[in-house]
């Protein structure tokens, strides 16, 4: 029988051992913890405090010698029509881009999972390939594809459609960037959805088929509910990624025409470039807050039934 209460010396030895283990464990964690505090946690906190000061490029060598200005930076931000425009563009990018990417990726995943038996690897590799590529590089390629005499308009020409000058049009520039982002991100969600579909119980589908449910009914009442956690995860990571879109306008439109593709991340970068460090920090914190809020909303919305 094991004694329920260990004797005093045993307890002392156990606690000495656990102290020793704690020391060793933090030894393992030390390099990570130090780098993390200096290059990640530090800047996250510093960014918050900086947003309440008037730090500019002139204070670079003396970052603690600044004035506290309270909410002035935030007040200025929400007074700037360009910042508001950037928020609107970013919101549109997320609200259109996320559902579109998810729907297409889910369709591809379902097709690969149920409909076909050959060439699955070829399809999977092909659809996933854009994910591994540099956004800067493919944005350049897409910039040429979307030119008035580019590949896309040549293709539309086969059907008698005269395509617009996509990137120079205030109407079409943002949708063009969304289209490219969808193209690049389908692969990630496809792989996640394929993994999620493995977790949908096959017996449920068979039972529903016996009951005469058609494919759409089975998808709505069996596949979708079983996929809820996966969909939630996919929505959160895609939304968080899209909230930060930056390379696309930087390379393809420089935020134009007339700020129609100016994203909040790009606005932040521009302000940083002008040397307005604390103002840029405030803008980045608005974006950060949006990221946190988005995660919470999506958790609530998709997690309703759990």
């Amino acid at each position: 029988m094991v004694a329920l209460t260990p004797s005093a010396p045993t307890r002392a030895r156990a606690s000495r051992r656990s102290r020793r283990t704690t020391l060793i464990a933090w030894g393992f964690a030390a390099p990570f913890v130090i780098l993390f505090l200096v290059f990640m946690a530090g800047p996250i906190v510093a960014s918050f405090f900086m947003s309440f000061t008037d730090l500019t490029t002139r204070d670079l060598q003396t970052p603690f010698n600044v004035n506290v200005v309270g909410f002035e930076n935030y007040a200025k931000l929400f007074d700037d029509p360009r910042f508001l425009r950037s928020l609107l563009n970013t919101a549109a990018f997320v609200l259109v881009g996320v559902p579109l990417t998810m729907a297409l990726a889910l369709a591809v995943a379902l097709a690969l999972n149920t409909g076909i038996s050959k060439f699955r690897t070829v399809f999977r590799v092909g659809y996933y390939a854009p994910v591994v590529t540099s956004i800067v590089a493919i944005a350049i390629v897409w910039r040429f594809i979307l030119q008035p005499d580019g590949l896309l308009n040549a293709f539309l020409g086969w059907f008698g459609i005269t395509g617009p000058d996509w990137l120079q049009s205030t109407t079409w520039a943002l949708p063009s960037l969304i289209l490219m982002a969808v193209w690049r991100n389908i692969g990630t969600l496809m792989v996640i959805f394929l993994a999620g579909l493995q977790g949908v119980p096959k017996e449920h589908h068979e039972a529903a088929m016996v009951d005469g449910a058609n494919a759409f009914q089975r998808f709505g009442s069996i596949t979708l509910p079983a996929m809820r956690p996966t969909l939630l995860f996919a929505a959160v990571i895609t939304g968080i990624g899209y909230l930060q879109f930056f390379e696309e306008p930087f390379v393809m439109t420089r935020g134009g025409p007339l700020d129609s593709t100016l994203s909040t991340a790009m606005y932040t970068y521009n302000q940083f470039g002008f040397g307005n460090y604390s103002y840029a920090s405030a803008a980045s914190y608005v974006l950060f807050l949006a990221i946190v809020v988005l995660s919470l909303i999506q958790f609530r919305f998709l997690g309703r039934k759990d």
Partner: peptide
């Protein structure tokens, strides 16, 4: 909790730190 903190939130103070 920091798995998803975007670079755009930290790059300004990180630059000040790097400069110093």
């Amino acid at each position: 909790s920091t798995l998803m903190v975007p670079g755009v939130v930290t790059f300004v103070p990180l630059f000040v730190l790097t400069a110093n």
